[in-house]
Design a protein around this nucleic acid. Structure first.
Lengths: 109, 109
DNA sequence: CCGTATCCCTAGGGATACTG
DNA sequence: CAGTATCCCTAGGGATACGG
């Protein structure tokens, strides 16, 4: 779902944020990119278990939602770097709140 | 997905929060309950478009995740009230951050 | 190295009808 | 009023294989 589609379907602005970060690997991708630009391979290694197809898919969605930049270096072998846009950076407080909330839940057990 | 299952599958605490609020109507249900206890019917009217089955489903999930209380009054006709637990209340800051983020995105167009 | 192309499978959620 | 019970349909993701 693109950001534009989200806006149309959402009955509440909060749902826009939800739809953008919703995806099996998106929070983990964001987490990686908060610490700096990463190559495709670095991401794949960090997100153990993700397949190439799915990682590509999730990255493309984040890209079309304006959250990340994709930079291709026309070399052999190919090199592609991913980084956060300003919009992507602006998600950091949100993920931190979510993180803290999750931590507190875990503690109760 | 229950909260317990979420914890097992999550590789990051933030994902726990995500999974709990993830659902077609959950943010909207929370929004309603932030303003106080509501009856089933009130919720259904507020969330225009939701079917009884789905609303029941989403409420049950929130209940089993410890986010809301379900109180049954054994009357005729039946009366069931839903309210937030302390844990549910603790989600308010999170939803506010999401809301504000969504608002800002909307403004750009 | 960084992707596409297929195929497949499941869970989430919608429509509709029935009930204590 | 507040639910179940069915049936169905789609999108998200996973496995695997191939390509520039």
């Amino acid at each position: 779902m693109t950001q534009q589609e989200s806006k149309i379907l959402s009955k509440c602005p909060a749902e826009i944020a939800l739809k953008i970060i919703n995806g099996r690997w998106k929070l983990l991708i964001l987490k990686e990119l908060f610490s700096g630009t990463k190559r495709f391979n670095e991401l794949q290694r960090a997100l153990s278990g993700v397949t190439q197809k799915v990682l590509t898919q999730q990255l493309r969605e984040l890209e079309s939602d304006g959250i990340i930049n994709r930079t291709v270096y026309p070399e052999i072998p190919p090199k592609v770097e991913y980084s956060l846009t300003a919009l992507g950076d602006s998600l950091k407080p949100l993920t931190e709140v979510m993180h803290d909330w999750g931590i507190n839940q875990t503690k109760q057990f």
